[in-house]
């Protein structure tokens, strides 16, 4: 039975290590500043100031403070449209253009979970 405990605790530990806080995909449709429990608590909203030369990060101007975030392979890029009839959709790094309003959420592990970009 002691071996039972060791095996199961080991595997439970693996499960814990592998688990990231998961986001339900409906986050795509939640406007900037409205993510429950995240916006204004665990996110930052500002204007995209510049993109990194290596193409894997952006600098956001948040209340006159420059904040750099690196994209992760799992980072979701949510494009937010305000025009009638247009649907929010997933975007790419190329959509993260300077001067666009954006909200970023970095997880407890330091990885950029998502960036929401306001599209013209």
């Amino acid at each position: 039975m002691r071996n039972t405990l060791k095996i199961l605790i080991l595997l439970a530990g693996i499960a814990v290590a592998a688990s990231a806080a998961a986001h339900q995909e409906t986050e795509l449709y939640i406007p900037i500043g409205k993510s429950p429990g995240i916006s204004h608590v665990k996110s930052q909203i500002g204007r995209i100031q510049s993109l990194s030369a290596s193409g894997d990060g952006v600098t956001l101007l948040v209340q006159d403070r420059a904040v750099y975030v690196a994209f992760d392979t799992t980072t979701k890029i949510y494009l937010q449209y305000a025009a009638p009839g247009q649907r929010n959709r997933l975007g790419t790094y190329a959509d993260c253009q300077a001067d666009r309003t954006a909200e970023i959420h970095v997880g407890d592990d330091g990885k950029l979970r998502w960036i929401k970009v306001e599209m013209p």
Binding site: T26, Y29, I30, K34, I38, K42
Partner: peptide, 28 residues
């Protein structure tokens, strides 16, 4: 199952978006 911070409190937001929308555009 929940967006945002993944909590029960936030679950309703995802449920409204998934199940209550008038169209498939799902524009808040």
């Amino acid at each position: 199952g929940a967006p945002g911070d993944g909590s029960l409190r936030s679950f309703a937001v995802g449920a409204v978006i998934q199940h209550f929308s008038k169209t498939l555009n799902r524009v808040a």
